[in-house]
Write a protein that binds this DNA or RNA. Structure first.
Ligand code: MN
Ligand code: MN
Ligand code: ZN
Ligand code: ZN
Lengths: 140, 140
DNA sequence: CTCCTTTTTGCAAATCATTTGCATTTACAT
DNA sequence: ATGTAAATGCAAATGATTTGCAAAAAGGAG
């Protein structure tokens, strides 16, 4: 039994149901830390529940993102990547050569002055910061 | 005659040719400041050169991005957006409701300490910073 | 300017990720 | 145990982007 706690709570709060597949998706993320594509999650999940369907994966990755249980990244390769939330807040540095994505604990948001933000007139919900470059293997 | 200068130079440098369609794409960007999808660029370009093809747009948006003449944004709506480089360095704040994307002159990269960056072992080439939220019209 | 080689274009078809409609199954509150 | 709303599996649809290929255009050399 995994820490179904958070998941169950968030789902119930909005009238969603706690299904085997939802539990499984979270389980797969827990057991495989890091960033994953829908395809990867599907493959991993399928090993444990042969009947699971790709649509279900997509629908739930979307839902879980909306619930802030997972985080949808756009590693700009045409394919979205997802990671479990709840780790420490972090951002990413991405190699343009091989696509390797490393986490950074640097967060530039924290040092922004509130007045500058208010000035924008937005109700801010979140932010993303990415650095691009070449890792040691990929120096061109 | 537009400022074909930069374009011509960058192309020649790598053995690419200066074609009418390439010139046109830049022209369209110049005359229509801001962010555009491939579709939008195609529509605008088509008005001036009826024969222009969608593949050509895509191929060149890709090429021009590689040459750092235009900038490919990922406004996370499944469709890439592009903007002309060369304006002032800036980042974006995006409304999750309507998709409106406003520019911010805030750049968090500048205040990062070099040592932290070196520590990452990457040869950094560029970065992106995005803030998400809801604009005044879209407060949920 | 003309010729030659290389790159680019237009076109059509293909690919890839993601989404949707619908009939059936499941969760869970009563 | 029952009823209803929500979720799943399946197959088909979408939408953006990419690709192969033959014909056209660009740019350098002569
Ligand atoms: Mn991460
Ligand atoms: Mn911009
Ligand atoms: Zn942050
Ligand atoms: Zn910046």
């Amino acid at each position: 039994m995994k820490d179904t706690g958070r998941l169950e709570a968030e789902l119930k709060k909005k009238g969603y149901k706690l299904t085997e597949q939802r539990r499984l998706i979270i389980e797969v993320f827990s057991e495989n830390p890091g960033h994953h594509t829908a395809q990867e999650i599907f493959d991993l999940a399928k090993r444990k529940l042969r009947s699971i369907n790709f649509s279900t994966i997509y629908r739930n990755l979307e839902l879980l993102s909306a619930l802030d249980i997972i985080n949808k990244l756009y590693i700009e390769s045409g394919t979205s990547h997802y990671e479990l939330c709840g780790g420490t807040h972090h951002h990413h540095i991405i190699c343009k050569g091989c696509g390797e994505t490393r986490e950074m604990n640097i967060c530039p948001y924290e040092s922004l002055e509130e007045e500058k933000l208010n000035e924008l007139g937005f109700k801010v919900t979140d932010h993303k910061f990415k650095i691009y470059g070449y890792c040691s293997k990929c120096r061109p």
